[in-house]
Design a protein around this nucleic acid. Structure first.
Ligand SMILES: [Mn+2]
Ligand SMILES: [Mn+2]
Ligand SMILES: [Mn+2]
Ligand SMILES: [Mn+2]
Lengths: 152, 152
DNA sequence: CTCGGAATGTAGCCTCGGCTACATTGTATG
DNA sequence: CATACAATGTAGCCGAGGCTACATTCCGAG
């Protein structure tokens, strides 16, 4: 490795950022995280509706690997936030807002996985890591990923 | 775009994964998330010690953008988990385990930021998004990132 | 039709990670 | 060397997201 590469700094400098800057970064990570669960739910509900015509609490719970009571409680939160509707014992449906969020989340998920694959991440690691990473990918980063994937 | 590129599938197929597979992916994302806060704390404490010789609860809180009581409570958890030690009113210190975790976390943070920069993500978005994404980067993915960055 | 088992829903418990309000301690300055 | 004030610590609240245990409802097989 050359120690004279002044033109293109490959590595990010390891300086402690300014305090408000750093606080803002951590804050963004926290708020991104708070929406993560709802994003996964709407994406999953949309997938289940498409592939089987219905989204039942038990199926949702099994797919997420949680107890059915946990799923039902979260579905309640989806309703409160206007992302889903459900009548007792009648399955879950997405609102317009829910469908639209699901579409965005699904598209982002795919781009993240594709980016990981493109830089050489093995398939299962890509899918697994993307499930968590996706919720922290900003629009700017998503756009950069898309540009990178579209390059020749 | 050619519609005959059968040799190299660029895009990940959009099929619903098998149920246990999907549950395991979501489960991994959940457990990764549960360690995220502790990772950020040890990295930050290590940085503060290096740059200023001490890590005080107030400074930690300001950098993270949380109330000092929140920081103190989490420092309690660091102690319970054997990552830090602190005597009342005397500042926080990392144990061997804490230092070692901090070193790994710092290295991973840098690789993630560098990877994002390398694929064209703007600097501030890279730093901001990395703060959340890093905690979901598995060893396999980290290794792939490092290989990608080391390419000619 | 009936009724038993699966699905759904409810209740109540836990930990985590935020917060505010207040109490205590340490120390720097006058 | 006293004390005002900043830092630290404690108490108690909240919501999210897990869980188990139990109650209720639905529906398909007989
Ligand atoms: Mn996800
Ligand atoms: Mn996803
Ligand atoms: Mn982080
Ligand atoms: Mn970090």
């Amino acid at each position: 490795m050359s120690d004279l590469m002044v033109t293109t700094p490959i590595h990010s400098a390891s300086v402690l950022p300014e305090e408000p800057t750093q606080a803002s970064r951590f804050g963004k990570a926290r708020s991104a995280q708070s929406g993560a669960l709802l994003e996964d739910y709407v994406e999953l509900i949309s997938d289940l509706m498409t592939s089987g015509g219905e989204a039942r609490p038990t199926d949702i719970a099994r797919r997420l690997g949680v107890a059915h009571a946990t799923a039902i409680k979260t579905i309640g939160r989806l309703k409160r936030e206007g992302l889903a509707v459900a009548k007792p014992y009648r399955g879950v449906f997405l609102t317009e807002a829910g469908e639209s969020l699901a579409a965005r989340v699904r598209a982002r998920h795919r781009v993240v996985v594709d980016l990981l694959l493109a830089v050489g991440v093995p398939f299962e690691a890509a899918e697994s890591d993307a499930e968590g990473m996706e919720h922290h990918v900003s629009d700017a980063t998503l756009a950069a990923f898309a540009r990178f994937l579209a390059r020749d």
